[in-house]
Structure formats: structure tokens, C-alpha cells
């Protein structure tokens, strides 16, 4: 737990994003949270392209990834990441409304680290996001230490 890494949140719904960010704050996480609204932006951030070409050093401790997003969906993002030499180690947690078997199977095939279905119940939603944030951003030792 030596360095504070960002939490990257890829979520197209501004309301779900607001609720997720609230939950992460409630967990008293001091990690910066970067919110992108579709798959293209998520990859731009991770690969340092486009408007994120000059972003700072370091990589996120975790990517919280929605599946249904415009332009490029979560599964395409996951596939692109897992094909990259370095970013294939990035912890990815899918946070999606979908419990469709097809999505689950594809996600696990692509090597997702966790698959969480967004609870409709507010308390459960908050609990889930808090738990994820605390684990991946604080407790877990992230990769890419040597290459930051």
C-alpha cells in the first residue's frame, strides 16, 4: 500500500456513476477517481491517447467496467486490454446490470478479475461498490510496480 493509485470508472449512466462515486467516497477512499463514459475513453486513458495523452504517471489500481456503453462496450475494452503486453495485468471488475449468461461466459473467458451485478437495492449497491473499492484500491497489491 505504498502508492495511491486512481480508480478508473467506465460507466455511461451519469446517475450510476454518481452513486458509485458516492459509495467510494463513503468508504473513505482517498484514491482519485477518474470517470469515463464509454469504452473508447477508457482505452484512451489507459493507453495515454487523445485527451489523455499527457496524463500523469502511474496506472489505476482497478478498472470498474460497465458492459453496456456506447461506441465501445465493456467486453471490447476487456478484450483490447488483455491483448496488451502490459495492461493485461490490470485488475478489471465488471460492474453491470446484466446477468446474461453470454456476458458472464465471455467476461470470464477474457480473464476478468471479478463480475459484479449492480444491485437494484440501494444499500446493497453501496455495499458492493464500497467493498470493491476497499479491496482493489487498498488491500490488493496492484501490478505494474516496476514500470510506473
Amino acid at each position: 500500500m505504498t502508492d495511491i493509485r486512481t480508480i478508473l470508472l467506465a460507466e455511461d449512466s451519469p446517475y450510476d456513476a454518481e452513486m458509485a462515486i458516492d459509495a467510494l467516497r463513503e468508504a473513505n477512499l482517498i484514491n482519485p477517481i477518474v470517470h469515463v463514459t464509454d469504452g473508447v475513453e477508457a482505452l484512451d486513458y489507459l493507453f495515454r491517447r487523445g485527451k489523455y495523452a499527457d496524463r500523469g504517471e502511474g496506472d489505476p489500481s482497478v478498472l470498474l467496467l460497465d458492459i453496456k456503453m456506447p461506441r465501445m462496450d465493456g467486453l471490447e475494452v476487456l478484450e483490447a486490454l488483455r491483448q496488451d503486453e502490459k495492461l493485461r495485468q490490470l485488475p478489471v471488475v465488471i460492474l453491470s446490470s446484466s446477468r446474461e449468461e453470454a456476458d458472464l461466459v465471455r467476461s470470464w473467458d477474457l480473464g476478468v478479475n471479478a463480475y459484479v451485478v449492480k444491485p437494484v437495492d440501494v444499500d446493497q449497491f453501496f455495499e458492493a461498490v464500497r467493498t470493491l473499492g476497499k479491496f482493489w484500491a487498498v488491500i490488493n497489491e496492484p501490478p505494474f510496480k516496476a514500470q510506473a
Binding site: 446517475y15 446490470s97 449492480k118 444491485p119 437494484v120
Partner: peptide, 17 residues
Amino acid sequence: SHDLRAPLRHVAGFSDK
């Protein structure tokens, strides 16, 4: 039923807020 869940989560979530 699948698409109704997201707005429902928002109704519940934001009334909670």
C-alpha cells in the same frame, strides 16, 4: 424487465440521497 432496473435503481438511490 432488464431495462427497467437501471432507472429503478436511480429512483431508489436518489431518494435515499
